[in-house]
C-alpha cells in the first residue's frame, strides 16, 4: 500500500481491506512457547486439513454451480459452527426473535454463506496457503495463515477455532485485521436499526438477496 494520505478512492479510502502486504511482515503470531500447547497445535492441524479440502474443491472446478455449492456446503457443514456464527451475527436480536424466526434466519444464513463462498471459488484458482503461528484467545485459538494467489499480493488471514481439543469448529475469519462475523453483525445491526428492529424485515432482505444471487 502506498500513500495513505492521498488515498482518496471515492467510496473507499476504506483502506486495504484485503490486500495489505505491509501488515504481513509484522509479528502477528507471537506465541508463548509454553502455550503452544496441544490446543494450538490441534487448531493449526485442523485449519491445515480444512484448507487442503477447500483447495481441492477449488481445483475441481469442472462441476456445475450446484455441484460446487454441494461440495462447499459439505465442507462448511463439517468445519464451521454456522449456527453459532449466525447467532453471533444477530446479536441481541437473537433473544427477542421467535423460535420460528430463529430457525428461518439460521437456515437463510447457512445458505447465504454457502452461496457466497461457492460463487467466489473461481477467483481462487491456483491458491496456496501456509499455516503460521497460533495464539491463545478467550474465544478459542487463532491460527494465522498466509494466502497466496497468482497476481495478487499475499493476504494475511486468521482463523478463530473454538473447541480445538474436542470438536474443532471455525467461528470467525479475520482478514487483515477485519473480523468477518463482527462486520456481519454490524451490518445486520445497522439494517435492523433502520427497519424498526424488525427481524422479519431482515429475513425478507436476506431472502431477497438470495434470490438475486440465483
Amino acid at each position: 500500500m502506498i500513500n495513505r494520505r492521498a488515498s482518496i478512492s471515492l467510496i473507499a479510502a476504506l483502506p486495504a481491506l484485503l490486500t495489505l502486504p505491509a501488515l504481513l511482515a509484522l509479528p502477528v503470531g507471537v506465541v508463548h512457547p509454553a502455550q503452544a500447547s496441544t490446543a494450538g497445535d490441534r487448531a493449526a492441524a485442523f485449519i491445515k486439513a480444512t484448507g487442503a479440502k477447500l483447495v481441492a474443491a477449488i481445483n475441481a472446478t469442472s462441476g456445475s454451480p450446484a455441484q460446487r455449492r454441494q461440495v462447499v456446503g459439505e465442507i462448511i457443514g463439517s468445519t464451521v459452527d454456522v449456527d453459532g456464527v449466525a447467532r453471533f451475527c444477530l446479536g441481541r436480536f437473537w433473544r427477542t426473535a421467535t423460535p420460528a424466526q430463529q430457525q428461518q434466519y439460521q437456515s437463510l444464513f447457512r445458505t447465504m454463506l454457502i452461496v457466497n463462498i461457492a460463487s467466489k471459488l473461481g477467483d481462487y484458482q491456483g491458491v496456496t496457503f501456509t499455516v503460521g503461528a497460533t495464539q491463545d484467545r478467550e474465544a478459542g485459538e487463532i491460527v494465522s495463515t498466509v494466502i497466496a494467489r497468482p497476481n495478487n499480493a499475499p493476504t494475511n488471514i486468521q482463523w478463530l477455532v473454538a473447541n480445538a481439543t474436542t470438536d474443532p469448529k471455525i467461528i470467525d475469519v479475520i482478514a487483515e485485521g477485519t473480523s468477518m462475523r463482527l462486520t456481519q453483525r454490524d451490518d445486520y445491526a445497522s439494517f435492523l436499526s433502520q427497519h424498526g428492529y424488525s427481524v422479519d424485515a431482515l429475513i425478507a432482505a436476506l431472502h431477497n438477496q438470495l434470490s438475486q444471487a440465483g
Partner: peptide
C-alpha cells in the same frame, strides 16, 4: 455504509 464503517474501524 455500515459495513464500510465497520471495516474501516477494524482495519
Amino acid at each position: 455504509y455500515a459495513t464500510f464503517r465497520s471495516l474501516y474501524r477494524q482495519h
